[in-house]
Design a binder for these strands. Structure first.
Length: 283
DNA sequence: AACAATACCTGACAGC
DNA sequence: TGCTGTCAGGTATTGT
């Protein structure tokens, strides 16, 4: 479930098993995901200590003791599962391997990290840590929506001359990095802005109001993702499931949730993606 | 240059 | 049951 909040949830879930831990072995079950894996990936991972786990947009970055960084992207359908018992408190067996388990990392601490991705839109790559930001997948990304560089003046300037619908503009990772279809729909609902409106024709005041709304939507989602992590620990080790009640996403035909609004949620397609919104209170 | 459509894959689900 | 069609949270590439 990979938009920014889901990726951050996965990153946080991986930290206790991976940060400071050494990769005992890496099993790579196919030559590629969306693109070929880097040459010798298993060898380059084996024996390395994970110094830190970072996130940039929807990418997880694991800095290794070798001076390389492992980039992980979940695509549309990627999942990462932790099994085993890195803290040594319980005895856990690893679950049976499943279809689409493409990469498996066994850590010296006993944890197993399994990357499963049916559609294979995900990616993994290795690059020098000190030049990671130059990676083609990272180089053109805009500011982090939860970071300091994403503020009201920035977004007003970034959208000022945009002729494209605000929905498409917010999905553009060069403008802001990490928003996906769900959270753009949700943020526009909270802001009362129609996804169909041209970005450059929204008043600066309303654009500025979007900034704290985007942050709040993402933070709410990260908090909800965190709560699903606790379920995972009680259950079978599955990580990254995100449960949240959406105001508009996937609620076509349902009543608008804004207090007193008589409208219903509509679905329209914009640049090939579904947009959900209430035409009554989003203008 | 800007923007829209397409392609990459598999699986889930609705309707027949 | 099993077929067909549609849709899916992302993003690079191709086309206009």
């Amino acid at each position: 479930m990979p938009e920014l909040p889901e990726v951050e949830t996965v990153r946080r879930g991986l930290e206790p098993a991976m940060t400071g831990a050494v990769i005992a072995s890496a099993q790579v079950n196919r030559p590629d995901l969306r693109w070929p894996f880097p040459p010798g990936m298993a060898t380059r991972l084996t024996g390395q200590r994970v110094l830190s786990l970072r996130r940039r947009s929807k990418y997880i970055l694991a800095d290794l003791s070798s001076g390389e960084t492992l980039l992980i992207h979940l695509g549309m359908s990627g999942r990462i599962l932790i099994s085993g018992d890195p803290l040594g408190q319980f005895v856990h067996d690893h679950p049976a391997a499943e279809k689409h388990d493409h990469v498996v990392l066994d850590m010296v601490n006993g944890a197993r990290i399994t990357f499963n991705d049916p559609r294979r839109f995900g990616a993994m790559d290795l690059m020098a840590t000190d030049n990671a930001e130059a990676h083609p997948l990272l180089a053109k990304l805009g500011p982090e929506p939860l970071g300091n560089k994403f503020d009201e003046p920035y977004l007003v300037a970034a959208l000022k001359d945009k002729n494209t619908p605000i929905k498409s503009a917010l999905l553009d990772q060069r403008i802001v990095a990490g928003l996906g279809n769900i959270y753009v729909c949700e943020a526009l609902f909270r802001a009362g802005i129609s996804p169909l409106r041209r970005a450059g024709r929204i008043s600066a005041k309303r654009v500025a109001a979007l900034v704290p709304i985007i942050r709040a939507v993402l933070n709410d989602a990260i908090l909800a993702g965190g709560s699903s992590l606790r379920d995972f620990r009680q259950a079978d080790g599955e990580l990254g499931y995100f449960q949240h009640s959406f105001d508009v996403y996937d609620r076509e035909g349902a009543p608008c949730r804004r207090a007193g609004c008589p409208g219903n949620v509509r679905r329209v397609v914009q640049s090939g993606r579904s947009s959900f919104y209430c035409a009554t209170c989003q203008r």
